[in-house]
């Protein structure tokens, strides 16, 4: 995905920490999980762990050791434990009809990663993807607690639509999403036109099937972006309309890229309608 081991470590850690933030919690403890081949320079592993440890520190948590296994290919992840008061736990199951949906971080990292593999992504686009993938969701998490929101989920491998669908199912509602409002990393649409679509995006599309309905105006490429599996993606937040302004203002204050991307409706035939 990325060649630089330090960056790779950072992204893996940001990804692992994200779940805790999405649930309204504060990460406390992180344990490394490492697979590494003995033929590879051990310096690389050092860099990966360094990247991971720095992100954990940035999240104000502690890396307390971990577990390593010899393997053919290097792999790195973290098991993260966090704290949250039982009354404050956020899940994806409390989105309410009338809520507004806010998405943090722009979409498209899966498509960019595919293009990076094919050496077809330009440096600016690749750098943007790396910037967002290694960004913690801590500030968005903190903002949600300050403002008070109804539901949240983090966007990862099942793509924006996949995780949105999970929220709709769990909350027993339908969602209306506005594709022209979704933030997308610059250059992603062009890469989609060139066929840089990861297999995961096709799987997500297939899995969701008729549950998602697109308006004719939504381009094929934009659909791909919405199905695109994200690495260390942002948060999808369901918030009551009166709290949208304070939420957006605070996110802006923290310099978190965010946009209002849709609304929650009472449950009807389709899980998700995209305009």
């Amino acid at each position: 995905m990325v060649d630089d081991p330090y960056t790779f470590g950072q992204i893996a850690a940001a990804n692992a920490l994200s779940d805790v933030f999405a649930m309204g919690g504060k990460p406390v403890l992180a344990l490394n999980i490492v697979c590494f081949p003995n033929c590879l320079d051990i310096q690389i592993l050092k860099e990966i762990l360094h990247g991971g440890a720095d992100k954990v520190k940035e999240a104000k948590a502690v890396t307390a050791g971990g577990h390593s296994v010899e393997d053919d290919e290097p792999k790195y992840g973290l098991a993260v434990t966090g704290l949250v008061h039982p009354n404050d736990i956020l899940t994806n199951a409390d989105a309410k009809p009338g809520d507004i949906l806010v998405l943090t971080k722009p979409l498209g990292t899966g498509i960019i990663n595919t293009a990076i593999k094919g050496e077809l992504a330009n440096t600016e686009t690749a750098d943007m993807a790396i910037k967002y993938m290694s960004q913690l969701n801590d500030k968005a998490g903190k903002t949600m607690k300050q403002v008070g929101v109804n539901a949240c989920t983090d966007i990862t491998g099942f793509g924006f639509l996949g995780h949105a669908a999970e929220m709709a199912k769990a909350s027993n509602v339908s969602l209306e999403l506005w594709s022209n409002k979704c933030p997308v990393i610059e250059g992603v649409i062009e890469l989609a036109q060139m066929g840089m679509i990861p297999a995961g995006a096709y799987n997500n599309r297939k899995y969701l099937g008729a549950g998602v309905v697109f308006d004719d105006a939504v381009s094929r490429e934009m659909q791909d972006v919405m199905y695109d599996p994200q690495t260390s993606g942002g948060l999808l937040i369901s918030v009551s309309p009166d709290k949208v302004d304070p939420l957006m203002k605070r996110l802006e204050g923290y310099q978190v890229t965010a946009a209002v991307v849709g609304c929650v409706k009472s449950k009807h035939e389709q899980l998700i309608e995209v305009r």
């Binding site: 610059e186 250059g187 649409i189 062009e190 890469l191 036109q193 060139m194």
Partner: peptide, 24 residues
């Protein structure tokens, strides 16, 4: 050019032709 449309923030205003990339 898609990059140019984005730069001038007028992607939505394109009325004729298709959005393209440098490669194409």
């Amino acid at each position: 050019c898609g990059t140019c449309l984005d730069y001038y923030k007028i992607r939505e205003n394109l009325a004729v032709g298709k959005i393209s990339n440098m490669f194409e």
